[in-house]
Simulated scan of single mutants.
Amino acid sequence: MVIKVLEKVFAILEFVASRQGRPVLPAEIVQALDINQTTCIRLLKDLVENGYLSQISRTRGYVTGPTAVWIGKNSLFQSQLHSICEPILRDAAPRENISMLVAVRHGKYRVLICGCNAPTGVQLNMSLPRFPDLFCSATGIMLLAHTPAEELTRLIPETVIPETPPWHAGITRAEIDLKLYTVRTSGEFRHQAFGVEACAAPIFSAGKLQAALGGAWRAALPAAQRDELAGKLRAVAATISASLGDGLRHI
């Protein structure tokens, strides 16, 4: 029960934060997150009392509060990785015309560090800080490919593995390990869905995977052009890795 309540609390906090300063009404939260209205009001009250949210007014709704802002500003993880990756993506995305994002794995979630959509072409969803889609996103699969076997053993029972490439119905653990090994050794992962090709490349520091860089473009593009875009994405990942060097102290 406690875990379910915490999931609702974090979902509310993330939903409000995703609006980037625009006040959110309780009715919007109830509808978007499918939370009981009475429970929602009670949790909002608790979040306000602890400073994670601030209520602008009864009619205007809620925004993130000072406690949440303080935590974000004092995150060593965000300050190092974000400060290095964000300007590189801000320069590379419009230059290469590739929408890009950097993600890490935190438990069963793919967590976004930063990203930048290109002026044209495929636009990536960066509306929320985390997504439960490790097994069905390019960056998620790249992160899984570098996940230790014992952690993967804990993750698999908690996850509904989709019946889409590279997975299939009834897939065995040995098959999962082989596919992830192939991703890990190839240095990239690409898949197509809904007219989009997504690609992910690893970001390393001190010989250890620190994050995954993802990008996307139209699957209808000629194969040679898609290969060229994938090469450019790998080059950006290499630039970030070189910038990180051995200085990233915490992941």
Score class of each variant (00 low, 15 high):
T64W: 02
T182E: 15
I240N: 10
A200F: 07
L144K: 06
E7Y: 05
P162G: 11
T159P: 06
S75R: 02
R130P: 04
R58D: 14
R90I: 03
D46L: 01
R226G: 12
V5R: 14
S243W: 05
A220C: 08
L233A: 11
P26E: 10
V2G: 05
A235T: 12
Y52A: 04
E158D: 12
E86Y: 10
T39D: 15
R95P: 02
V24M: 04
D34A: 11
L178K: 11
E14Q: 07
I98A: 01
I161P: 11
I113K: 05
I88W: 02
R19K: 15
A68G: 15
D177C: 00
E49V: 01
A220Q: 15
F204E: 13
P202G: 09
I161E: 09
Q20D: 14
S241K: 08
F131L: 07
H250L: 13
G65R: 12
T172D: 15
E158I: 04
A169P: 01
I141L: 15
A11Y: 04
I240R: 03
G214D: 10
G51Y: 05
A220L: 07
L213M: 12
T172Q: 13
A242P: 01
S18R: 02
I41S: 06
W70Y: 11
Q225G: 00
V69T: 13
A206L: 09
G187C: 04
T153A: 11
H250N: 07
A206G: 11
V122R: 00
L33H: 04
I113N: 09
T153I: 01
E151F: 07
C114G: 08
F204A: 03
V24W: 00
D34P: 07
V24N: 02
A145Y: 03
E7A: 07
A219R: 07
A118K: 12
Q123K: 15
S137A: 04
L221T: 08
D177E: 14
R184C: 13
C136H: 08
L81I: 15
G72L: 01
